[in-house]
């Protein structure tokens, strides 16, 4: 298109200026604050260099938060992808296109729910006395089952909610990906008497390797925002057993001590990690 229209500039400039201002001002501000010793009670801060970052690495709660966040990433990304691929294949293989459509619609219900709602729905379902999910255990053993107050099971229980939301949703995406594949390789494999699982392991999934890896990266970044679920379901407890990075940053900055600068240091580290992961996705998706 060789027109010298003003349109691209008129259309693009306002949006980009607004986005740049709204994104860069907080980012720069976060970095500046992280080099200061600001607190909520005091509006001004002094420049302290890397003190906050150095303090972070000798902070055992921060190290704990990294561990919790990493376990959270591994659990939620791993199970989400497993369930997505498993259910996606079943949807593709076992039911008629009509049923597929209905099931696909039902499977996106959890992810559309506000996370606060999802968290509450499950928090109540796991209630030791009145919960519907713990009822069978209680009926059989006569003992209440309190998964969310047990440091060993709390993180897994919250992760279940995340996987419930994302695994079902991603299974619909896997189904759509399978539907876009050409049918010939499937038929060829069937003619060679390949069993169903062999068709998927050796033919279909390798063909979908690139989009599936991208999907896993998207989930990795999405999993960094565990905050809403954890805040409603456990508030980082019992103890600090479910305290992820964003939960810890929040409680340092707001609940306990109001150490805004310290919290900001953590936020900057998270930002760096996210940007790295995102750049990898972008490169993979384009090349």
């Amino acid at each position: 298109m060789k027109n010298k229209s003003t349109l691209p500039w008129v259309f693009l400039t306002p949006a980009m200026v607004v986005l740049a201002v709204l994104a860069l001002v907080p980012t720069v501000c976060a970095i500046v604050i992280s080099f200061e010793d600001r607190e909520l009670s005091r509006p001004d801060g002094n420049f302290v260099g890397f003190d906050n970052y150095l303090a972070l690495f000798s902070d055992r709660r921060f190290v704990n938060a990294i561990t919790v966040s990493l376990s959270w990433e591994v659990i939620t990304v791993g199970f989400t992808m497993l369930i997505a691929v498993g259910l996606g294949i079943l949807l593709f293989e076992c039911v008629s296109p009509r049923t597929r459509k209905i099931l696909a619609l039902l499977f996106i219900v959890p992810v559309v729910l506000p996370r606060v709602s999802a968290a509450f729905v499950w928090k109540f379902a796991f209630h030791p006395l009145y919960g519907i999910a713990t009822y069978p255990y209680k009926a059989i053993t006569g003992q209440p089952l309190d998964l969310l107050s047990n440091p060993l099971t709390a993180l897994g229980t919250v992760a279940l909610v995340d996987v419930w939301q994302w695994g079902l949703f991603f299974s619909v995406i896997v189904l759509k990906l399978l539907e876009t594949l050409p049918p010939q390789p499937f038929e060829a494999a069937r003619l060679d008497h390949a069993r169903t699982w062999e068709v998927y392991t050796y033919v279909a999934l390798p063909m979908l390797k690139a989009p599936l890896i991208s999907l896993a990266f998207v989930k990795m970044i999405e999993s960094l925002r565990a905050f809403d679920l954890i805040y409603v379901m456990t508030r980082g407890g019992p103890g600090i057993s479910t305290e992820t990075l964003d939960m810890y940053a929040f409680s340092q900055g707001f609940i306990e001590s109001g150490r805004i600068s310290y919290a900001s240091g953590m936020a900057v580290l998270m930002m760096i990690a996210t940007s790295l992961a995102f750049t990898v996705i972008w490169k993979r998706a384009k090349i």
Binding site: L12, T27, A30, G253, T274, F278, W282
Partner: peptide, 23 residues
């Protein structure tokens, strides 16, 4: 531009919220 726009979608909310609160 597309890279920039999409990367914003993935910014950790806590990293946006803390400085904005100060601002």
């Amino acid at each position: 531009i597309q890279f920039f726009v999409l990367s914003l979608r993935f910014l950790p909310p806590v990293a946006v919220a803390i400085p904005l609160m100060v601002i």
